[in-house]
């Protein structure tokens, strides 16, 4: 599993490392809906998930501390 992930990461980096979008070409990427994270207003929903579900992490939310959650 970890080997696959490293390979995936490596391939992702390899494929994309030569891409270079200039600052003035990032209009679409700078759209607030393109942010690579949950919206701030959604964070309580993520917190409820961490209480009701076993899985946590890799989403910018809680990772198991600071609450009596799973």
């Amino acid at each position: 599993m970890i080997r696959k992930t490293i390979l995936l990461l490596f391939l992702f980096v390899s494929i994309t490392s030569c891409v270079s979008v200039k600052e003035y070409e990032k209009v679409s990427l700078n759209d607030p809906d393109m942010i690579l994270a949950d919206k701030k207003s959604d964070r309580n929903i993520s917190t409820f998930h961490s209480y009701r579900e076993a899985a946590v992490g890799a989403n910018g939310g809680k990772t198991g501390g600071g609450c009596g959650c799973n």
Binding site: F12, V13, V21, L36, V56, G57
Partner: peptide, 29 residues
């Protein structure tokens, strides 16, 4: 109860309209 978490993140612009990110979190409680 102690929780120790370490996370790695990698984000990449893939084109003028596409971007992605990969995250790895390791947590020990």
């Amino acid at each position: 109860r102690n929780s120790y978490a370490i996370g790695l993140g990698f984000s990449q612009i893939l084109s003028k309209k596409l971007q992605g990110t990969l995250s790895l979190d390791l947590i020990m409680q």
